[in-house]
């Protein structure tokens, strides 16, 4: 088995007195796509936000590349190569495409390297290159998602956390997003994918965990989960 990149152990998170995560444990290995599935309110987004340091955890540990990052501030976690793309894209609407990408590499001091990374984002998403001077808010949903992914790639992540990349995107564009994730995977990027679109997620994932009300209730290889009766019934519909 390949190198262990992320290890989450007994992670607990509370919103006030309400438990949002009730001690979940899972792993992500280098080069994998791992998905967290579950219905609304299962705790998927909370899991990502706790890992990336946006929400403090109450108990448990998060280990990334062998280091305990549980209590580290969010901006410090990004520097280590663990990068979360926020749910709903969260493009800076009044910033140009160029500025959005620059901010993605905020922790980088090397200007030449910043240029190089930007060129590679433009190569991957040529549409962004043609819109580089445009304000983020003027882009279409699909373009914004590309910008959000590009912005995340600007910090050259070792592990990319994606929170519902298909949310609010036209079905036709969801296919493009799927292709983008496949390509990232092929290039060796490790991805932790949170999706309500279970069909899409299981089509991509090497391994999956199913969450329900703050706990992991099922796990397995992507291909196995796709055939699992309970998963099919609960998440894959017809």
């Amino acid at each position: 088995m390949s190198k262990l990149l992320l290890k989450v152990e007994n992670l607990e998170t509370y919103y006030g007195k309400v438990a949002a995560l009730r001690g979940i444990s899972f792993e992500v290995h280098e080069g994998q796509i791992v998905t967290l599935l579950g219905s609304n309110g299962a705790g998927k987004s909370t899991t990502l936000k706790t890992i990336s340091g946006l929400i403090p955890s109450a108990a448990g540990t998060v280990t990334f590349c062998g280091e305990d990052i549980t209590r580290k501030p969010a901006h410090d976690i990004v520097k280590r190569g663990l990068v979360q793309l926020p749910e709903g894209r969260h493009i800076f609407k009044d910033h140009t495409v160029l500025e959005n990408l620059e901010l993605g590499s905020y922790t980088l001091k090397d200007e030449a390297e910043r240029k190089r990374r930007m060129e590679s984002v433009f190569e991957r998403f040529p549409i962004l290159a043609t819109r580089r001077k445009q304000l983020g808010g003027t882009l279409s949903g699909g373009e914004q998602q590309m910008l959000a992914i590009g912005r995340g790639l600007m910090s050259s992540p070792k592990l990319l956390l994606m929170d519902e990349p298909s949310m609010g995107i036209a079905p036709l564009i969801v296919r493009d997003i799927t292709e983008i994730i496949k390509n990232l995977h092929k290039e060796g990027t490790t991805i932790l994918l949170v999706e309500q679109n279970a069909k899409m997620a299981l089509g991509l994932a090497d391994y999956g965990y199913v969450m329900d009300t703050g706990s992991i209730v099922l796990e397995g290889r992507g291909s196995d989960l796709r055939r699992d009766e309970k998963v099919v019934k609960a998440y894959l519909g017809d």
């Binding site: 901006h75 990004v78 926020p86 969260h90 009044d94 901010l103 922790t107």
Partner: peptide
């Protein structure tokens, strides 16, 4: 400047800035 761009970005969306590695 990067600091200036970060200031404008924080004004709009603090959490996303934290996810970019900005020390808000």
């Amino acid at each position: 400047t990067m600091v200036g761009k970060a200031m404008r970005a924080i004004a709009l969306d603090r959490d996303t800035c934290r996810l970019m590695g900005i020390n808000v």
